[in-house]
Amino acid sequence: MPQFEQADTFVSQLFWLAITFGVLYLVLRYAILPRIADVLESRQDRIANDLEEAEKLKRESEEALKAYEEALATARARAQEMAAAAKAEATKDSERRSAELEAKLAEDLKTADARIQDVRAEAVSGIRSVAQETAQAITSKLIGIEIDSGTAEKAVSGAFGENR
């Protein structure tokens, strides 16, 4: 077995093992391992930071959503209020107008009634004077008696009174 037979190479093997292992240890210990540790640590930090940031943003967005919902609810309430107010106003307005219209119509009716009364009275008095004159004319023509207007008027009103 060369591993035991070549004992004269033992020192050489140990010598080169010490050199290579020593160099490897020093390079890894002081150059490479700290670098890997740095990278891993900074990545860890970065991930932790990002998670924190994400958490913060999530909280903020939740707050914004809540504020938005609140604003929406307020706006809706106000809109309903305004709509109700407008409706009440409109109802009142229309009620007022219809009342006005009714009042006007009633007045017009009254005026018209009065006029009808007037016209009727005028017509009636017109008929009376015509009847009086006609009665005077007829009496003078038929029996030749001139009657004064007072008598004729009395007769006419008597006839009207009987007719009524």
């Binding site: 004269d8 190479t9 050489s12 080169w16 290579t20």
Partner: peptide, 12 residues
Amino acid sequence: NLSFTNSSLWMV
């Protein structure tokens, strides 16, 4: 004997 051998070569 500190010779650079095939063993040393592969260590390097």
